[in-house]
Amino acid sequence: MTHRYGQPAPMPDSIRQYMRGGQNPARAIACPRCGVAAHRPCRIPSRGVPLAQIHQQRIDAHTQTVACCPTCQVEPTIPCHANGRALDNGAVHPARHTEATREAA
């Protein structure tokens, strides 16, 4: 099989994400739920069927890497916590989701 296109164009990741059109910015990282690579659609792990939506764990992981949390006052890459304990399954506070969408815009 021959390939029509070579390597992707050299450009910064921020511009590349913009050029990807309507994709959710959370697709820029690998999914911790189903294990797919970055920029690939989430899949059902048992059957390998691609999903139309993104797993919530992937959205939470992306939010954790790009935004500070106004609720628990943590910096990016640090998990949200409540009463000194990290939230279950890597969840983040709703205010952190709002902050991540504000930064993406």
Rank of each mutant, 00 (worst) to 15 (best):
9 A>P: 12
62 H>Y: 15
58 R>I: 00
46 S>A: 14
96 R>M: 02
4 R>Y: 11
47 R>L: 14
80 C>W: 04
31 C>F: 02
103 E>P: 02
34 C>M: 08
71 T>S: 04
20 R>E: 11
66 V>C: 10
1 M>R: 12
97 H>L: 05
5 Y>V: 13
16 R>Q: 09
2 T>D: 12
52 A>I: 07
79 P>M: 04
16 R>G: 08
4 R>A: 04
3 H>D: 12
61 A>K: 03
72 C>M: 05
22 G>D: 11
14 S>P: 02
98 T>Q: 07
1 M>V: 14
47 R>V: 13
83 N>W: 06
86 A>W: 01
89 N>Q: 13
105 A>W: 04
37 A>V: 02
35 G>T: 13
92 V>P: 00
79 P>W: 05
25 P>G: 05
37 A>L: 08
93 H>R: 07
15 I>V: 14
8 P>S: 13
105 A>G: 09
6 G>E: 15
1 M>E: 07
100 A>E: 06
72 C>H: 05
14 S>Q: 00
80 C>F: 08
2 T>R: 11
70 P>S: 12
95 A>P: 03
11 M>V: 10
21 G>Y: 15
30 A>R: 00
85 R>V: 07
7 Q>R: 13
36 V>L: 15
13 D>Q: 14
21 G>H: 11
71 T>L: 01
67 A>H: 00
105 A>R: 02
69 C>T: 06
62 H>L: 06
3 H>Q: 10
81 H>L: 07
25 P>Q: 09
32 P>W: 08
92 V>G: 07
